[in-house]
Simulated scan of single mutants.
Amino acid sequence: MRRVVLLAAVLLLAPSRVRAQSEGAGARVRGIVVTPEGRGLANSIVSLEPGGRELFADDSGGFFIGGLAAASYHLRVRHLGFAPRDTTIVVETAGPAAPLVVRLERLTMRLGEVRVRGQKECRDPGPPDPDTDPTLAVIFEQLRENADRWVLLARQYPFTWQMERQFRFGDGDRAQMTRPDTVVIRGDLAWGYAPGKVISEVVDRGQRTRQLNIPGLRDLADTVFLAAHCFSYGGLETVDDSEFVRLDFRAASRIRGPDIDGSAYLDPVTYQLRRATVRVTKPDEVGRNITELRVTTWYREIAPSIVILAGTRAVTTFDTRQGSADRTETQKTVGVKFYGRVPPGVVR
């Protein structure tokens, strides 16, 4: 049985006074994020309010925030697999001081003992309530943390990624394959989820066709998407010889048009998102003779605790006179290009 320890989701500390040296445009704060053993936590997310300042810590867990006025600030530090930490700091301009040391505690849950609760209908959508189901709420927040990391990555380290795609029509020896082509996608691109509107009309290869907009990592941080889905714990599941924490989501029953049901699969130790599966609800409304539309997405780590899309496989099943037939679209990431700075520890 896998044993993971569940700690309080937020640790609130007493206010700390920080003497921040004044330099030109304002004061500054330095610090380091560490594990309970004192090891630096690369790519921790550090945010400061008021002011909306948010950034990744460097590869040793260090962070620097400049241009501050002397005042009280709310400092929040978080990292995948660890309980977030909140504190109030009072910034002064009386000269330099020792860097802040922010120590994060690991999340621990007895996942094998958590009750699996399936859902047939979604009548009360929205994020899990930590008061009624604290374990589900913690797992959900780890999924959302993956999404927040993607959003911050695109903002702090602008990038594009190149995907190679190919279509396959039919099965067996009579299957037809198209020649691979490539598309370049911006990291900050968001298609804008709307309930019941995951299918759009596009022109592809000179032909007008319907396109499924697959919810990506950004959508898992989108309040509209979260408010339109119910979430439940699907248990520990083994897929391709690897064990995952499965989190299921289901579209709200009130949504009239085609939408998305699916599952996200997290690493049970690091809580990194590794794969996701989705299916379109009401596929008969998507196109003529369509009986099923399902998509599997894989993710990989590009920098410590930051994942990006590795590939997708979308299968559309049609009802024909000869029986069912599939059209399969595969995509795989073949390159990532950063414009300017590169995240610490990046793996190409």
Results as ranks from 00 to 15, higher is better:
residue 245 V to H: 10
residue 327 R to D: 08
residue 64 F to K: 01
residue 317 T to Y: 05
residue 275 R to F: 06
residue 321 R to S: 11
residue 261 D to Q: 09
residue 71 A to Y: 11
residue 84 P to N: 04
residue 150 W to S: 11
residue 273 L to F: 08
residue 92 E to G: 14
residue 138 V to H: 14
residue 293 L to T: 05
residue 38 G to M: 13
residue 57 A to P: 02
residue 22 S to V: 14
residue 240 D to C: 00
residue 52 G to Y: 08
residue 80 L to G: 02
residue 213 N to F: 02
residue 77 V to P: 00
residue 79 H to Y: 10
residue 245 V to T: 10
residue 162 Q to A: 03
residue 204 D to N: 15
residue 108 T to Q: 10
residue 317 T to I: 14
residue 284 D to Y: 11
residue 329 E to Q: 15
residue 32 I to R: 14
residue 261 D to H: 08
residue 224 V to A: 05
residue 158 P to S: 06
residue 213 N to G: 05
residue 98 A to Y: 02
residue 32 I to V: 15
residue 245 V to K: 07
residue 326 D to G: 02
residue 130 P to K: 10
residue 95 G to W: 04
residue 157 Y to L: 03
residue 122 C to W: 06
residue 262 G to R: 02
residue 296 T to G: 13
residue 29 V to M: 07
residue 89 I to D: 08
residue 184 V to M: 09
residue 269 V to I: 14
residue 151 V to I: 15
residue 102 V to E: 01
residue 38 G to D: 05
residue 71 A to T: 09
residue 231 F to R: 12
residue 146 N to G: 07
residue 326 D to C: 09
residue 321 R to N: 10
residue 263 S to K: 09
residue 146 N to H: 08
residue 16 S to M: 15
residue 19 R to M: 09
residue 46 V to L: 05
residue 168 R to G: 01
residue 14 A to H: 09
residue 290 I to Y: 12
residue 216 G to Y: 01
residue 3 R to M: 04
residue 340 G to F: 00
residue 276 A to I: 00
residue 310 A to W: 00
residue 228 A to L: 03
residue 325 A to C: 03
residue 176 Q to V: 15
residue 67 G to E: 04
residue 334 V to S: 04
residue 286 V to D: 10
residue 345 G to F: 03
residue 33 V to D: 01
residue 92 E to K: 07
residue 126 G to W: 13
residue 90 V to W: 03
residue 33 V to M: 01
residue 268 P to K: 08
residue 158 P to V: 03
residue 314 A to I: 05
residue 226 L to P: 01
residue 28 R to C: 11
residue 197 K to A: 14
residue 119 Q to N: 05
residue 229 H to T: 05
residue 298 W to Y: 13
residue 179 R to D: 12
residue 274 R to T: 07
residue 258 P to Y: 03
residue 321 R to V: 14
residue 147 A to V: 08
residue 215 P to I: 06
residue 280 V to D: 08
residue 141 E to N: 15
residue 247 L to F: 03
residue 120 K to H: 10
residue 244 F to R: 14
residue 225 F to E: 10
residue 168 R to W: 00
residue 11 L to R: 15
residue 234 G to A: 05
residue 205 R to N: 13
residue 154 A to Q: 03
residue 75 L to T: 03
residue 110 R to N: 08
residue 178 T to C: 03
residue 217 L to G: 02
residue 274 R to Y: 02
residue 224 V to M: 02
residue 212 L to A: 11
residue 27 A to Q: 13
residue 292 E to G: 12
residue 306 I to V: 15
residue 247 L to Q: 04
residue 54 E to V: 11
residue 150 W to Q: 14
residue 189 L to G: 11
residue 139 I to S: 12
residue 118 G to P: 10
residue 306 I to N: 06
residue 343 P to N: 07
residue 155 R to F: 02
residue 156 Q to I: 04
residue 135 T to L: 11
residue 194 A to N: 13
residue 203 V to S: 12
residue 289 N to V: 11
residue 239 V to W: 08
residue 34 V to L: 09
residue 330 T to F: 07
residue 10 V to I: 13
residue 148 D to W: 06
residue 191 W to Y: 11
residue 203 V to H: 07
residue 202 V to H: 14
residue 276 A to Y: 00
residue 55 L to S: 09
residue 295 V to A: 14
residue 15 P to M: 07
residue 306 I to R: 01
residue 88 T to Q: 09
residue 83 A to Q: 05
residue 180 P to V: 13
residue 237 E to K: 09
residue 173 D to T: 14
residue 189 L to Y: 15
